[in-house]
Design a protein around this nucleic acid. Structure first.
Lengths: 238, 238
DNA sequence: GCTAATTTCGGAACACGGTCGGAAATTCTT
DNA sequence: AAGAATTTCCGACCGTGTTCCGAAATTAGC
């Protein structure tokens, strides 16, 4: 007799859809039409339920996008890790960056509160790798957290600025956009370096220098940390 | 007879409002109710015009917010600049950061395309200061642009993450938020450093370490730059 | 069986940013 | 003075994310 063995059917109206089904349908819509075209109504009608029903399974659209990121984040490949601690850190950070930058809609949820904390095992493995690298380099754990946060800010900023720079229609020249240094260099100005580089700015800004900047950042952070707490692996205990 | 002297009244229906009036009213609404409460309709009715009328004077709401930032940015005080180049850089960058972080709605437009390029003289002065500092430190101008962009990414990332972390109601514990490392440390796990620091993470993440990280970043960027191009003030000419 | 409790579903509605097309108000031309 | 040209204004509308609240479907208790 299946009494305590079989899980009793839950009380209440049985759900006609599930969070997993919603996420699957969302993925399909994004793959087919692009993430900008993903609307709550479209998603609901695709599944065949009322619009409001989705909100029983997902807090809001931002939460939906996060859950998609959550699942994709598990697929970020773990890179081959070098032995040298600072190389390990940069390798892991670049993996995080490239993984997140691959989904344009990641920018929509990247800065939500507790984003890192809510992520899954595979992604946290990369965070852990950075923390371990910093500790292995000789910094106390508290400093490792600080260093990770600094790297995180840099990474998020790069992804967000680039994500918002890509699009934007340049068809009409808004008179608001008249900037005296970028675009047209008219006469001698106070901002000499800015004026001197103005015409090359756009080309320079288009280059991908994330990894290069990251290496410099890690070098600087580790050096700063090791200078302030020389030798001691942990500054708080015993 | 005033014919060519007096500016002839322009042809067409005379405008009943102006961009300046709109910006002033927007400032007043933000000061009184907070920037989250600023809606296009509310602003229009406050001025006493139709909603659509605003769109004749401002491209869209994002543009409106940018124009407000534009004016406020002119008020960022120019800090006393040290002699040492890298100190000058960090001082200017901190001034930019603090100035932008003071307006929560800056986060809304910070990443829009051409944000820096559209800013006004006073703000560009700070950009120029950073470029000049980098060049004075011995780096070529192209590298100075790259270094500025790296600093900019870090700054934007910090502001955005912090701006989105502050709010968010913590009233209900969403079961989605179950993270095995942050919040509850249950048993031995692969992510040892993460687990070891989990309970202190929130406190550490709350600290303001922007300036400290910035100094490390500038040090690392300058060192990297000077190592790769030793001595030469400009690597391209003569 | 019948009612109560419980859970999910979804139509209607709201506030939002934004667009369209035509009305309104003015100067220019004849 | 009358019409053409030009510029601005704005009611109506669209699509969006989100919420309210009652209907619907199921189990639990009697």
């Amino acid at each position: 007799m299946p009494r305590s063995n079989a899980p009793r059917r839950p009380v209440g109206r049985p759900p006609v859809t599930s969070r997993e089904q919603i996420l699957t349908a969302a993925r399909a819509l994004i793959d087919e039409y692009g993430w900008e075209k993903l609307t709550v109504r479209r998603l609901a009608s695709e599944i065949g339920v009322g619009t409001t029903t989705l909100y029983s399974h997902v807090r809001d659209k931002e939460d939906l996008l996060f859950l998609l990121i959550y699942e994709y984040a598990e697929q970020i490949p773990h890179p081959e890790l070098p032995d040298e601690p600072r190389e390990r850190i940069t390798t892991a950070a670049v993996a995080i960056h490239d993984g997140l930058a691959a989904w344009p809609w990641a920018a929509e949820v990247l800065t939500t509160d507790g984003f890192i904390a809510r992520l899954g095992d595979s992604f946290l493995w990369l965070v852990e790798t950075i923390l371990a690298g910093v500790v292995d380099a000789g910094c106390p754990r508290e400093q490792a957290v600080r260093i990770f946060r600094s790297i995180w800010y840099y990474t998020v900023g790069e992804i967000l600025v680039r994500a918002h720079t890509r699009r934007r229609k340049m068809d009409e020249q808004d008179p608001t956009c008249l900037n005296p240094y970028f675009g047209n260099a008219d006469g001698p100005l106070r901002h000499s370096h800015l004026a001197a580089i103005a015409d090359r700015w756009a080309a320079l800004a288009g280059q991908d220098t994330f990894a290069q900047g990251l290496r410099a950042f890690v070098d600087g952070l580790l050096a700063q940390c090791l200078t302030q707490t020389p030798g001691a692996p942990d500054a708080g205990a015993s």
